[in-house]
Design a protein around this nucleic acid. Structure first.
Length: 137
DNA sequence: GCCAACGTTGGC
DNA sequence: GCCAACGTTGGC
């Protein structure tokens, strides 16, 4: 299994909205960046991810699961852009902030810290474990 | 609201 | 194929 991180501005699409979708999940539309898209292309059903609130909060707020592999992004006809479907698994007991990721040993090389503009990014298994520990999940 | 970082576009 | 111009993301 591989691990990922999905960024969303809560103004546009929040964790609460994601939770409200339940097991139906939500198509992760709107990605128009090749790196982020390539990350989605590498995802398999059952992969896990963090749900991160950018701009407002700047913290990891929940866990998600990939429930459908890539298919055409339904918000565009441009065949270059496809996306996965994710569903909320569970909220964190304690949010893990960007500031924390910057200083906690083992997290300083996260794309979240190093490549701030990448909206869908890989997380290593070691990073995943550290953050789950901090988040109490 | 500003701006740094960085990705994309298009002229040459 | 280079690079200037431009647009966008997201932290501050």
């Amino acid at each position: 299994m591989n691990f990922w991180l999905f960024k969303s501005e809560p103004d546009a699409w929040s964790w609460d909205q994601q939770v409200a979708r339940g097991d139906l999940g939500e198509e992760w539309t709107g990605v128009r960046n090749y790196q982020a898209r390539n990350n989605m292309r590498a995802m398999k059903v059952g992969d896990r991810g963090f749900f991160y609130h950018s701009n407002i909060g700047k913290e990891i707020v929940g866990l998600v699961e990939v429930i459908r592999g890539v298919a055409q992004d339904s918000t565009t006809d441009d065949p270059r852009w496809d996306c996965v479907v994710i569903k909320a698994l569970k909220p964190v007991s304690r949010p893990v902030s960007l500031d924390e990721c910057k200083v906690v040993p083992g997290l300083e090389n996260m794309a979240l810290v190093k490549n701030t503009r990448l909206s869908v990014q890989p997380v290593t298994e070691a990073e995943w474990r550290i953050i789950c520990g901090l988040a109490g999940v």
